[in-house]
Amino acid sequence: MSLEPFSHSEALTLGVELELQLVNTNDYDLAPYAEDMLRLMHKQTLPGSVVPEMTSSMIEISTDICHSWLEAREQLGQIRDALVKSADKLNIAIVGGGTHPFQQWHERRIYDKQRFRELSELYGYLSKQFTIFGQHVHIGCPGANEALLMLHRMSRYIPHFIALSASSPYVQGQDTAFDSARLNSVFAFPLSGRAPFALTWGEFDAYFGKMARTGVVKSMKDFYWDIRPKPEFGTIEIRVFDTPLTVERAAALAGYVQSLAAWFLAEQPFVPDEDDYLVYTYNRFQACRFGLDAVYVDPQSGEHMPLREHILHTMDRIARHVQTHGATGALALLRDSVERDHNDARWLRERQRQEQLLGEVVRQAAGRFRGEAVLRAAADAP
């Protein structure tokens, strides 16, 4: 079995996918309403798509191909508004965040789809524990070799993406002490982690062929890597983001990815090296555990620095490309949260300290997702 050819795509185009929670409006626990939501959503003409996910209390939305974060924000906003109206008809709510704060995994139901049934048979209880919620960002690449270069360059910034999107501090009613506990569930899968260090499509195709001959994989979908190539789309797909609490933040994160990719293509700022991965797992852990308070280890110099400083320094370096691609607003939103040391995980913890009731925290998060002005203003307050 060989890998499919790398399709043509327009460089630096974007696609955004968001996995979202369906909760009841009684105690705000997860609710198995995916089939009903999909039935209502499929009656509407919208950009992108709405599809089922592993368990019946979650759905995935995605944009069409976008050229800017503003276009992605507009499409996500349209889908969000339609979701909220459909949810209101069902007396349920839609929530962002990387984990549901208090759901019990054993109560989940696998969605009735062949691939999900097969994964459940293979992975057992891990499939139900995979009721976690992430954002995926696709970035168009001019060619297959360029995609692999982009993938390995982007790997240095995985801690940025984790810390900026972190929104999963609670699991089964407990504060995990992680800003992003969601990724601990991903790491349990045997084909998670990082992609192999290949810089040409020929090398990568040979690797895939060896893996396919073992019978372990059949397609790229079987790899749960932090970043993976998507040859059918002509993109790379970054998969470490927690789902943010708002679609606006999700779009801003996509704008950051696009700006980094533009910098890579225009300036070729460094050559990826296998040694980049010496501290990869450590940096990723730091970002999951401490969020914006993490330590970042430079893979080349070995210098230790606060992750927030590395993020701000990177934003300064790519400023020209941010402006060129119309992402100034996206980076301003993210920079402000870095300077205030405030991500979605912090917001959730602040709400819980105030309310002392995770159900109420989820209710307020549902309000934030739908864009209620009062809650949005409260969330943005220092």
Rank of each mutant, 00 (worst) to 15 (best):
Q352T: 04
W347Q: 01
P52G: 05
R117M: 11
R213H: 09
H106Q: 14
S259D: 02
Q129M: 15
M220W: 05
Q354P: 01
C288E: 14
L312K: 10
I132Y: 04
L265I: 09
A251H: 09
A378T: 08
P142F: 03
T324W: 07
Q129T: 09
P244F: 04
R289V: 02
F290L: 14
G371I: 05
T281Q: 13
S56H: 02
G98C: 09
S2F: 11
I139M: 08
S167T: 10
P382S: 13
L151N: 10
A250W: 05
F116H: 09
C66L: 10
Q104E: 13
T200M: 04
L348R: 14
T99I: 06
A163W: 10
I238R: 01
H8L: 12
R317M: 12
Q354V: 11
Y207N: 01
T214H: 07
Y282T: 14
T214N: 05
V361M: 06
P52A: 04
I94C: 03
E339C: 11
G98E: 05
W201C: 00
D275C: 07
I158R: 00
V137W: 07
I110P: 11
P272C: 03
Q268W: 00
T99F: 01
R39G: 00
S2K: 13
A82L: 07
E339G: 03
I79E: 03
Q352V: 05
W69D: 13
A287T: 00
N91K: 15
V297T: 15
E248C: 02
P306L: 08
I238M: 13
Q352M: 08
L375C: 06
R117F: 11
L30Q: 02
D36Y: 07
H325L: 14
A345V: 09
H152Q: 11
V23H: 04
A181N: 12
G329M: 05
G302Q: 03
T214A: 07
D29S: 15
Y28R: 01
G291S: 01
